[in-house]
Design a protein around this nucleic acid. Structure first.
Lengths: 121, 121
DNA sequence: CAGAATCCATTCGGATACTG
DNA sequence: CAGTATCCGAATGGATTCTG
């Protein structure tokens, strides 16, 4: 099919070689392997600073507790920043951190592809 | 930071516009939002036809039941094919389907980035 | 508005043991 | 080898209620 890089033992140059061991990737991948996590990263990037309600709207019927948890985790992981303004009504804005934006760059193509899959199914 | 596409109401051209609603993406994203799922896609792609044991090795201490479930789901979702040979000892090979390979293309950059994050942390 | 808190059913994922 | 079967604790995620 498309060309497939070989994973021969001596291709240890991490530039070209595929990863030989996926064990340590969990630290990064696990927080992303949760419901809505990747979508939250991308939607936050697309909206720029995004308010809670805006993010919530882009999903159909997510419970606030679930989304809240996800947001907390992504803030914790350093992908999102959370700015709270002492206004009335209160306002909270989430935004991508630099690290989060790097991640979003990798995620966007995936979500676009996912979108395409949905439409043609 | 990096340029951020605007999501104005009239940019309905799905070529340039970001996705406005992430509701329907669950169908594609949910199976991927499970532990090891994305890694399994990529490692299978990297290995070419991959045997169960080979895949298992690339993860540290995954339980067989978990990996088995994940593999089944990805076969079910149409990303992996499963070929069983009536030999002794038995041999089973997993491989990416065409659809799975498309997905892998989107996933590889992500996993490479994840790997980099791990090393510099 | 943006959630935190609580409760709860379901699911997930790991450990272990067993099989063709 | 490549799983399946079973059990179980932990985590997930939803509904609902409440709050500053």
């Amino acid at each position: 099919m498309t060309e497939r890089p070989d994973v021969s033992a001596d291709s240890l140059n991490s530039q070209n070689a595929e990863i030989a061991c996926y064990c340590p990737l969990g630290g990064v991948m696990d927080p992303l392997s949760r419901r809505y996590a990747m979508q939250v990263i991308c939607v936050t990037g697309a909206l720029g600073p995004a308010r809670y309600g805006e993010i919530e709207e882009t999903f159909g019927g997510v419970s606030s507790s679930t989304l809240s948890t996800r947001l907390d985790e992504l803030v914790e992981a350093g992908y999102l920043s959370r700015e709270q303004y002492a206004e009335i009504p209160p306002r909270v804005e989430y935004d991508l951190t630099e690290k989060g934006d790097e991640l979003r760059e990798k995620l966007d193509p995936l979500l676009e592809w996912a979108e395409k899959q949905e439409t043609l199914s």
